[in-house]
Amino acid sequence: MTISRKILYLLLAMAALLFLPWLGGYFFYNGEFPADFYAYPPLKPISKPGFNLPIFAFVAIVCLGITAIYIMPKWFGFKKTIIENTRNIPRVKLPIWFWFGLICWAISLTFLALHLKQPAWFIHWSDVPLFWGAVLVLDGIVYKRTGGKSLVAIIPQELIGIGIASMTGWMIFEFMNFFVDDNWYYPWGNILDREEFLLYAFIISSGLLPLAFEWYLLFLTFPKLANRFRNGVKIVLSNGLKNGILIISLASMFAAGLFPNYLFFVLWVSPPVVLGIVLNKIGIWTPFDPIAKGNWAPVLLSALTYLVAGFTLEGQNYLSAIHDGQTALFTNDPAYWQYSIPFVNVAHIFEMPVLGYFGYLPFGVYCWVWWIACATLLNIPAKFLKENPLDI
């Protein structure tokens, strides 16, 4: 396959993530979106169907099944992998960027958690040092546990590239959020002008995807976790089945815009599947590929990254506001978010409904395949085109 054709297929796949939900929404609104439909940031929740016990129970059963894969992998055909610890890891100190990141993260979180009002310029933009401070802290821990190997130490240019790709990778979700009637919104987003908030959103989102990669590398430093899912069921999909899954995934993204209250979750599940299949078809490695050899570790661990990262982000988000019970009364953080999710919007941990955390699992995989897609388009020799980019 020629390079130009590979680029074309990737661009079409990326365009589909934007166009198909828009097309579904176009039909949903009979060709005329409401006047404030694209207002960003969304400041208020849109009315949604209330709690539904049968739907909640069904989703909960699915989530329990997913949880069981991580807790009891042998139930799903995973065999125990013998771990031979023959490596002598050099003892190194925590690097200087760990301490710099810790200071940035701690100061930002302190200002937000104490709900300070001054200096306003710092508080309003504090998510930048908060997110990137966490990235540097995680990288420093990886550096120490591997004896001197980390993204900052070995391939800082790739970490920067992931950060740049993160801005478009996340803003796609902000765009898709319009077509599921704003599942999340920013009730204090009007602290900033809309133009400034848009710039702010681009900049702070640069720290979102790097968190996934840092957590993944940290997971690899724990041999039992890193090897827990390497010896599982081998699944090889035929081209016909891949095509079928791709068509269903694309159709579901269109349907999500058409039925936003019932298929809103599709916008988390389908993007990594669409990108993963298209990348596979043009001959580019993805974390899905090792499944053919029974190695599920790249997919399951990359999914786990944002279950952990998402939980910490939700905690930081919750601390940044003053609450009366579950009601947020005040915050100085313009990016403070809340959720408006149909049917299952109960049993919150922080602002997120408990079942909503499982949406972070496909997003973790999306982070990896999005970076692979961007690196392929730009002909970047990315190290993350294999399971263990640092040979930990």
Rank of each mutant, 00 (worst) to 15 (best):
N190A: 14
N85M: 12
V128C: 05
F178T: 09
F173R: 00
D127E: 06
Y185P: 07
L114E: 04
A106P: 00
Q157K: 05
F178G: 07
I141M: 03
F111D: 02
A165M: 13
Y185M: 08
D181V: 12
F98R: 01
A113D: 05
P129E: 13
L130P: 00
L192N: 04
F178C: 10
P95V: 13
F100Q: 02
L136C: 11
F98H: 02
W75I: 14
L102E: 06
L94R: 00
N177G: 05
W188D: 08
I155C: 13
L116F: 12
Y185D: 10
L114Y: 01
A165I: 15
M72V: 15
G77H: 02
Y186M: 10
Q157H: 04
K117L: 10
F78W: 02
A153S: 11
I162T: 11
L116K: 00
N177T: 09
W99V: 13
Y70E: 12
L114S: 06
M171Q: 07
L112P: 06
P156K: 03
G161I: 07
W125Q: 03
I103W: 01
T81I: 12
L192Q: 09
P95N: 06
I154P: 00
L112D: 11
L192Y: 05
A113E: 04
F111N: 01
P73N: 06
W125G: 10
P129C: 13
P119I: 15
W105Q: 02
E84A: 09
K93F: 10
I82F: 08
N85I: 15
W97M: 08
Q157E: 13
E158K: 00
T81L: 12
G163D: 11
W99L: 09
T146L: 04
I83D: 09
G161C: 07
I71N: 04
M171V: 15
W75S: 09
I155M: 13
P95Q: 06
S126V: 15
R91Y: 05
N190T: 12
D182N: 11
L192K: 00
N177R: 01
K93E: 10
G189D: 13
P95E: 11
K80P: 08
A134N: 01
T86Y: 04
F122E: 09
R91V: 15
W125C: 11
F100E: 04
I71V: 15
T81W: 07
R87A: 14
M72Y: 12
A106N: 01
L102Q: 03
L130R: 00
Y186V: 14
K144W: 08
P129V: 14
L94S: 05
I103N: 00
A153I: 10
S166P: 02
Y70G: 08
I103C: 05
H124K: 08
M167C: 12
I155K: 04
I164V: 15
I83A: 10
I191T: 14
K93Q: 07
D139N: 06
I107T: 07
I103E: 01
I160C: 05
P129H: 06
F197G: 10
Y143N: 10
K80A: 14
V135P: 01
R145N: 05
L112T: 09
H124A: 15
G189R: 01
E158V: 08
D193N: 03
A153H: 03
M176H: 00
P90N: 03
V135A: 11
I141Y: 02
R194A: 15
G161E: 05
L138W: 04
K79L: 14
I155L: 11
F111V: 09
W125D: 08
